[in-house]
């Protein structure tokens, strides 16, 4: 047999085997998307952006089986959602890390937007360190494969040549192009969603918009922009700290705040209950206030 035929059969075998844990997720009005079985007790992970409905979610299994699914919780910052189906499924895949992955390796993206499994082939084109999504989510590794993003592939797995699931694909984080959330990040988010049904986030209680800093201050801080306070909730941590309309936040603790995602990223759960120094520009002067970060309701 030729190497090509061997390779071809190997790829088909991987698709057949992993395809058993790839499900269809009907959670929005238009085209259905995909989901991947997380554990044998009925947990399915998918992309948050494909679950537009909070109720009446259906999950379709290989063959013609389908079941109702309940939304356990979602994390829009990493575009992950966790569903629970009853009765099904009985086999769960192994989710492993990306330690053995290298740029150049073959990778398959699987999806089940319709009745049948679909596969798409490419190579790992980029493998990087931790990164931050535009919504302020923290993702352990940057994994991008050049597999074509086919409609409905979000929520399906990225699989290596050995059939190992390395992460969950979504087109919801990088302006439509497919990116993979590594298994380790999925695991962490699933753990939090199971424990609380949501992701704990720090909270200040301010409405903000990006604003350009006065040139003097910009020079002094080597920072062009900050976040202008346009509303303060009464009784909120920001209110108690003395933040008022017109202040511009430029840093929280050691973290520079230039844009909205800087703030979301900084206000991660580990700051809840902690006193932080909020550096602001008020009336053209730099000023420091102390706020106790609350928990996002």
């Amino acid at each position: 047999m030729s190497v090509l035929t061997d390779l071809s059969s190997d790829l088909a075998a991987v698709v057949e085997s992993v395809g058993k844990v790839v499900v269809r997720v009907e959670g929005r009005r238009r085209l259905a998307a995909s989901g991947t079985v997380w554990s044998a007790d009925g947990l399915v992970v998918t992309a948050s952006h494909v679950v537009e409905n909070e109720e009446n979610i259906r999950v379709g299994f290989p063959g013609d089986d389908s079941a109702d699914a309940a939304l356990v919780g979602r994390d829009p910052t990493t575009d992950l959602a966790l569903l629970r189906v009853s009765g099904k499924p009985d086999n769960a895949p192994e989710w492993t890390g990306v330690d053995t992955l290298q740029a150049g390796h073959l990778a398959l993206a699987l999806g089940r937007p319709g009745r049948n499994i679909r596969a798409s082939l490419g190579i790992i084109s980029a493998l990087g360190e931790e990164w931050r999504t535009r919504a302020g989510g923290k993702v352990d590794r940057y994994i991008q494969a050049d597999v074509p993003a086919y409609p409905g592939f979000s929520g399906g797995p990225l699989v290596d040549a050995a059939g190992t699931i390395t992460g969950l694909n979504t087109s919801g984080l990088l302006r439509g192009s497919l990116i993979t959330i590594p298994a380790s990040t999925v695991k962490q988010v699933v753990g939090e969603l199971l424990a609380r049904g949501r992701i704990l986030r720090g909270y200040l209680g301010v409405g903000l918009q990006p604003a350009r800093l006065p040139s003097e201050i910009a020079k002094q801080l080597s920072q062009e922009t900050g976040l202008l306070v346009i509303s303060v909730e009464s009784g909120s941590p920001a209110d108690k700290a003395g933040l008022v309309l017109g202040d511009t936040i430029v840093a929280i603790g050691d973290s520079v705040i230039r844009r909205w995602d800087d703030l979301l990223y900084t206000l991660a759960k580990d700051l809840i209950g902690i006193d932080v120094v909020v550096k602001i520009v008020r009336a053209g002067q730099l000023k420091e206030l102390t706020a106790t970060v609350g928990e996002h309701p």
């Binding site: 035929t5 071809s8 790829l11 088909a12 057949e16 596969a119």
Partner: peptide, 11 residues
Amino acid sequence: GESASLEPGQF
């Protein structure tokens, strides 16, 4: 060939 026996993933 035979299109009925194709399997997703095949080259």
